[in-house]
Design a protein around this nucleic acid. Structure first.
Lengths: 244, 244
DNA sequence: ACAAAAGTGTTTGTTATACACCCATGC
DNA sequence: GCATGGGTGTATAACAAACACTTTTGT
């Protein structure tokens, strides 16, 4: 039997893009009183899990994702660790821990990961949980310190996407330039100029245009592009363009 | 008696700048066999410590720094967490843990912080430890996973300094533009053009020129500048200049 | 007077920004 | 034939990169 580490967990902020909005995967947390049949807890959390003693935290985070989505090979990155002594001390959280036979006083460190997928690539795996995509703007209050974890993840995403080619991770393998532009607009909540955007991406040699077009759209079909990791690795300029 | 958390530690990569090179604070780790009087361990580590059960990890990291340097109010930032199951499994590390009555099989998660100071602002506090500044290029092999922690910290520093005004943290409150340029050159190991550099910093409104000059130098004394955090907060442009 | 670093300007190429119209397709 | 989004160019301003000489001080 594999040993669980009682003091380490991972939480995954799984961001999804549905063609219009940035969303995040949220799980319902419900607890029903066995005698009265009354729901004593009914709130929401991010997705997380314990870590096995012989498992790396990266593997644990992948396991969480894979359990929920069946996906492999998704973008996943550690972004911050949360360890405040009182992070599990809200009444509902204490109740929840006691009910699941865990020590409510234990201090649990959680390492936050964030992940990027195209919403409609994912077939959510329920396994008795109520799992669903929620637009960032409609998340509301979450259990534990998950609002903090989410906002730090979002902050990291908004910064990273400025400097690293990860916007593609929110799209299908083949995508149009308009879809790519929409990703930036959704993440930053801004509007970008189409012509200037295209001039900019034209300089990114790792965006490869295909001899292939959109199908099934009621207008002029757009050209499809793919991201080439090889071209990116070869051509990325190193650290020398400081912009403070 | 304050309880120590046996599973959480912090490691601080304390970067210093001495006017010429980027350095890092290194502590000797020695263990002498009580019978033979022979040194069985003599190697080097970064600075780290346990975390108290009722202490935040940020407070713990500040405590480590303050113990070593007496400094308060230094730049300190969490950058990555290290939790590999085998991170303390090298023979010397096992020996060290056993000797200090700790469980050598326990899995300890360490949260990495990095910190920036001007070397000559710091009066190192020894308390029986051999603590010293070592130029980045001369660090050599470290105990535990500290080479990994150092290289990730350096990677983070090299990136952050591109996009955030933190170079000043490695200098005295008042500094010359040449000193500032030298910081970038030391961190990136590049040479920058003096005139272009000055044109660039002239645009940073939060760099305030003083009516004050260097003294005690055998050449034309340079003007002194300070960094204004208030001006920075007010004028920093938000996220909208994506450059991938 | 000399050594040492401070301080300064111009040119050329590239990138950022602002802005409006025709085109190809499905229905 | 019309609704829908695809795709394109130009002018102006800001920034990047390359490059050399005079000034001020201490000794």
């Amino acid at each position: 039997m594999r040993q669980i580490s009682p003091y380490i967990s991972v939480d995954c902020v799984l961001f999804g893009y549905n063609g219009a909005e940035l969303e995040v995967l949220i799980v319902d947390r419900t607890l029903t009183d066995e005698e009265s049949g009354e729901q004593v807890i009914n709130d929401r959390t991010l997705t997380g899990n314990h870590v096995y003693e012989d498992e790396t935290i990266e593997d644990a985070a992948y396991r969480v994702l894979n359990d929920l989505t069946g996906l492999d090979n998704v973008f996943l990155e550690q972004f911050k660790t949360f360890a405040h002594p009182d992070r599990l001390k809200k009444p509902n959280d204490q109740l929840w821990l006691k009910n699941s036979k865990r020590n409510p006083d234990a201090r649990i460190v959680t390492i936050g990961f964030y992940s990027l997928v195209a919403t409609d690539k994912v077939k959510l795996i329920w396994k008795g949980r109520n799992v669903r995509w929620v637009p960032i703007s409609e998340v509301g209050e979450l259990a534990f310190d998950h609002n903090l974890i989410l906002s730090e993840a979002l902050r990291t995403l908004r910064l990273r996407i400025k400097y690293e080619p990860i916007a593609f991770e929110l799209l299908h393998d083949k995508f149009t330039l308009t879809q790519l532009q929409n990703v930036y607009e959704a993440i930053w909540d801004v509007e970008l100029d189409k012509r200037n955007f295209r001039k900019k991406v034209a300089r990114m040699k790792y965006l490869i245009p295909l001899d292939e077009k959109q199908t099934g759209v009621a207008h002029k079909p757009a050209r499809l592009y793919v991201f080439s990791r090889e071209v990116y690795s070869k051509t990325k300029k190193e650290l020398f363009d400081f912009t403070i």
